[in-house]
Design a protein around this nucleic acid. Structure first.
Lengths: 317, 317
DNA sequence: TTTCGCTTGACAAGGCTTGGACAGACCGGA
DNA sequence: TCCGGTCTGTCCAAGCCTTGTCAAGCGAAA
């Protein structure tokens, strides 16, 4: 559609109202930027009204993007449109890297509250419908980060405070566990993808954290070996060797005997092959951060943290 | 349907009241625009009353759209109807782009390309797996906007260019249709949510666009009445009355008989209750923008555009 | 008769322009 | 830490022009 020697002329011209509408800048700003910084030089109509070309509008939109990314107009006003475009691309990429984990929309907070209400009234069908619908709408990874994990955390708090019984906790965690393991299986094995093993330490029967981690890894494109809960260290080591895994992730929700858990992990670290990364997560792991770091076990207490680490490993080689 | 001795020239002529009603402009404006800018030259009856042709009304509707987009009548009055139509299309597209920031990640572009490759090799299982996996990962709304719609568009292009056969097209559209209708049903009816009816005009058997629109509306929290394809206008009106719908959305993919489609829509517009908004979408609707605007039918040629409009309606009351 | 439509002229509201003023944010220096 | 200067977006005033509405008087249509 482009002629090789595209004319430099800009035939289409727009009044200031349209320019304001399209760029998202106020008419005042359009005028003052022109006056102070000579940002664009729109043509004029017979009555002196500004008439913006498409290129002008594009440039103004870029300037708007640059300033709302925190740059001052004075510094970007003189840049060429190309330089501006590159700058804005860079800003967008940087911001996405930073804010992607924080996808906690107000909507997701509502879902969390509603889930707890349904759990409280033991409405299994309603809960199932709500959670599956939400997962479908917002996508698995966002669901895990901003719904599943917060729901479980709140559930734990309420249970601790005596406002909920084990029955409530079971209802929610078994439902989420079903959903999440289905998700894991739904992602077929990828060729050339590294493998991650997910489990809990011996004695810990709270599978749900491990399941969330496994699903997050599956979505990230890893092959997931999900071994369930309460596995002795020796078993984990054997399986890891046999399957040539790259990462072993351990979910530690609740620590009953400190030394026992730490002993398990010490055995794991010692017997796993050198190239295998050991990552611990969950509330229990957060409470043991110092000890774990001392024995070369990484700690990633949130889903986004785990995801970021997995991504880094694949990119870094 | 028309009299056999149809006059060659502007067959239908309408008094100023009808023109005002259809264009949304006041009678005063119609007269002053004619007097000051020579915007149209309606014929005159024996007593000197203006009689507007359909083409006049279309042009006036376009002018109305242009002025409410921020352009001044003085600047657009002299444009040819074609130029005007192009301008209005551009404005609509720009507005849609601004309300819905393009979620076209590089990742989604990969999925689109891979989907077409799988379709080309008629790999139904692979396509199914890829599309369902992507929908689960990125969430339904993002999937509809940046995967499903682009895939269908590209598919249409390739089919037009003779590089794909109807078999390829059927494979993809039936798979997407299954996925999307399942999604629609998965969203239980919401209390207090307005209802949208989704269908295609009589004679159009391309359901897929309607299905996408329906799913997008369902995700937005509307109750969706999905009636499939090829429904006569009377049926649509009856159903809309019975179900007390707020919006009727018509997907027009391919226009075989212009007049027939326009006739259908005219009947719809005339018989639907006053409070019901009529929205047309799809490639076919885009090609009929001028005529549709003239008969008070909204045009939203993209999924994000439709979603933005639905959101506006619920917020604005 | 009553309603509708036409024309003309007048007029008020509002948009756009220029120029100036100003308050808040930000920054560098004491 | 505080203070003065700069940067930046918003607001205001005045003038000019565009634009929509209104009124009055008249004629045609229902």
């Amino acid at each position: 559609m482009k002629s090789p020697h595209d004319t430099r002329q800009a035939p289409a011209r727009h009044p200031i109202a349209v320019a304001a509408e399209r760029t998202g800048l106020s008419q005042d700003v359009l005028r003052i930027w022109e006056r102070r910084y000579g940002v664009v030089e729109p043509g004029r109509g017979p009555g002196g009204q500004r008439l913006y070309a498409d290129a002008d509008i594009e440039r103004l939109a870029l300037l708007h993007a640059a300033t709302s990314a925190g740059r001052s107009i004075g510094q970007v006003a003189r840049l060429s449109t190309e330089a501006l475009s590159a700058l804005v691309d860079e800003d967008i990429a940087a911001r996405e890297r930073r804010t992607a984990p924080a996808a906690a929309t107000p909507e997701s907070a509502d879902v969390v509250n509603e889930s707890l209400a349904l759990a409280r009234s033991l409405d299994a069908a309603g809960l199932d419908e709500l959670l599956r619908g939400t997962a479908a709408t917002m996508g698995v990874s966002a669901f895990l980060e901003s719904v599943a994990a917060p729901v479980l955390r709140r559930l734990g708090d309420e249970w601790h405070a005596g406002r909920l019984t084990p029955a409530h906790e079971h209802l929610v965690s078994s439902l989420l566990h079903d959903m999440v393991t289905q998700t894991m299986r739904a992602f077929a094995r990828w060729r050339d993808a590294p493998t991650i093993m997910v489990t809990t330490p011996a004695g810990d029967r709270h599978v749900i954290g491990a399941a969330l981690a496994g699903a997050a890894a599956a979505v990230e494109g890893w092959n997931v070996l999900y071994l369930g809960a309460d596995l002795p260290a020796e078993e984990v080591v054997d399986a890891a060797r046999a399957a040539d895994v790259r990462v072993v992730a351990i979910s530690i929700i609740y620590v009953e005997h400190r030394d026992r858990v730490l002993g398990e992990l010490r055995v794991l670290r010692a017997r796993l092959p050198d190239g295998v990364t050991l990552i611990a997560g969950g509330a229990g792991a957060a409470a043991l951060t110092a000890e774990l770091l001392a024995m070369d076990v990484q700690v990633r207490s949130s889903i986004p943290g785990l995801v970021a680490e997995l991504r880094r490993m694949r990119e870094g080689g």
